[in-house]
């Protein structure tokens, strides 16, 4: 039986990791809500943002957090372009399947280009505060993890406020709920959908910067992220942002607790067990609404 202190520390670490998962899953949920698209390339963009932060730090020595100023708008534009130029070309009848293949292809291209540009070597950012940690009721928490969590939490809060309390947010939610009705009310659903994709991809930029602070990165790392993220959005119920957040926190914590007893790779299988279990016994997910029933 592990000591209470160790368990407490694991719970904290799990929550911090869960915050990052929740932010990224929110992005995936946005794409799914807007277009019924399962965006496989989401985590590839995450790793791309992490590489950009690492590269900027290596070349100029700037703090990785500063790269957000560039990557967030850049990824927003990339998301808009992705939706307007590529995904909207696909035939609506086969959209779900073909969009998976298209975003998968994008993920392969990003992974290949990263490998070509930066080689497959594992990279890590060394910062002055990399090894600093805080004591909190006997648990040691690295400062970089706290920064990552704070970034994720702030972005999620911003996303929530934007969706709930702005005209654009209302238009986006209307588009998600019923596209034709939204269009009848005068909403330019195509443009709103494009911006929604931009927002989703911007979460990957924030997440990637947070990831670069405390993780070792390599080009094929994104496969280790997309699996858990997809498990989270299915368990949460496809299309439900709060569901994804709750599932992210719960599964992140379970993974962290399992790591006390098991090797890291075995602990990661909890996501897949949760995924298969959910689909076999409650296919609409635990917090899913009307949307999840048919997908």
């Amino acid at each position: 039986m592990p000591s209470a202190g160790l368990v407490f520390q694991s719970v904290l670490l799990g929550l911090l990791l869960g915050g990052l998962y929740a932010l990224l899953a929110a992005g995936l949920t946005l794409y799914f809500g807007i277009m019924r698209v399962v965006m496989i390339a989401h985590s590839a963009f995450l790793i791309l943002a992490a590489y950009l932060a690492w590269w900027a730090h290596r070349e100029t020595g700037v703090d990785p957090l500063l790269t957000l100023v560039v990557t967030v708008p850049l990824f927003f534009l990339a998301g808009v372009a992705l939706q307007r130029l590529l995904l909207s070309r696909l035939s609506p009848v086969t959209l779900t399947m073909m969009s998976v293949l298209l975003t998968f292809a994008i993920a392969l291209v990003i992974e290949g280009l990263l490998g070509y540009a930066f080689s497959g070597t594992q990279r890590r950012i060394r910062l002055g505060y990399s090894s600093t940690s805080l004591e909190l009721f006997g648990a040691r928490i690295a400062v970089v993890k706290l920064i990552g969590f704070a970034l994720a939490a702030l972005s999620l809060l911003g996303l929530y406020l934007l969706l709930k309390h702005s005209r654009f947010g209302q238009a986006l939610r209307a588009t998600i709920q019923h596209r034709e009705a939204a269009r009848l009310l005068g909403i330019d659903t195509d443009r709103v959908a494009g911006y929604g994709f931009g927002l989703g991809l911007a979460t990957a930029a924030v997440g990637g910067t947070a990831l670069s602070l405390d993780s070792t990165i390599y080009p094929s790392l994104h496969w280790h992220w997309i699996g858990p993220l997809m498990a989270i959005i299915v368990v949460g119920g496809l299309g439900s942002v709060p569901g994804a957040a709750i599932a992210a926190m719960t599964l992140g914590m379970m993974q962290s607790l399992l790591q006390i007893e098991l090797a890291a790779t075995w602990a990661q299988t909890i996501f897949y067990l949760a995924l298969f279990g959910t689909l076999a016994f409650r296919p609409q997910g635990f917090f899913g609404g009307r949307l999840a029933q048919r997908f």
């Binding site: 799914f32 399962v38 779900t96 689909l279 296919p283 048919r294 997908f295």
Partner: peptide, 9 residues
């Protein structure tokens, strides 16, 4: 049990 998207996942 479920349609397209979950199958791919």
């Amino acid at each position: 049990r479920v349609r397209g998207a979950s199958f791919v996942i």
